[in-house]
Amino acid sequence: MVFTTELLIDIDKALLAVMIFVIMFGMGSSLTINDFKAIAKSPRGVLIGFLSQFGLMPLIAFGLSTVLNLDPAFAIALILIGCLPGGTTSNMFTYFSRGSVALSISMTTASTILALFMMPLLLKLYTAGFAESLQAMNKTSEFVIPTKDIISSLVLVLVPVVLGMILRKKSPDWAKTAEDTAGFVGMIVILYLIFTAFFRHGKYFLETPITVYIAAIGLGLAGFLFGYYLSKALGMFPLHQRAISLETGIQNGPVAFAVILLSFKEPFIQNQMIWLAILYSTFIVISSSFITLYFRKKGRFDWDIYKNTVIHNRLFGDNYVTQYPCSFLPKPLQKDPSQGANKSQKR
């Protein structure tokens, strides 16, 4: 598909820049140094998260691009999205899906830092073929993946995060407000982009090949699915499975916009890539809402047990072990460390 007009006018770009700044600032506002230290406490979970975020997701994106035979620019965008770190959105969804928020935060923090190295590396690896065919189509100019630009845009995106963390340290109250506002602003801007896109470029929705839709929706869904079962296969408990699943599927959308706008200057390529990023950001909110509702229902029982044991420890002392009658717990949970096998029930 070809974009005959510029997809984003200057106002949109400015808005997008503001949104990226506010959201990343909000993300920083929710972080403290302790969140970095916490990574060391659950290295297993973070490692599995790392595997599914930087191992599975790019692979899924690559697979989808190949199988669906996407245009090279779409394919590069999809792979780029696949290589992104997690964002704060996944923490909120994890909270409501009764998953381990602590693990979600640890994974977000770890992946945000690791993305600096992993993203350029993975992009080089997976997009090499697509970049070549892009260059073949676009003979006038030479196209290479702008690794340097990608790294510098990632660094740039981290600046508001650091600023947010400083605010959190100075004034937790303001930081909380910044966090709330960020979610709200993010939602408004995404909606604005969709609506203006709809009215200004309504035809593009119809022109977009069905395969692109499948890719934009499928990437998130496949991430949820594989993240859930990979972590299950590696012996994680339901609480962590839900966190890893959501963290895998939900990527940090704003970073995608920042990288595309700052690194892929060629309008023809940029338009296609932005378009895919918009589609992904829209559909991921909807699909993760449904997944969250499903997880929330499914996870009710093990979450209640987790909560109850944690609160017993909080009130009755760290050494207290809650002993349920054995018939009460389903088999998978009986092996759970919260069930008396360990002295400390904390998961």
């Binding site: 029982f301 209640d304 909560k307 109850n308 609160i311 349920y324 009658p325 009460f328």
Partner: peptide
């Protein structure tokens, strides 16, 4: 009425 179990406080 109510569906409570051993996890309730």
């Amino acid at each position: 009425p109510g569906k409570h179990n051993m996890n309730d406080r």
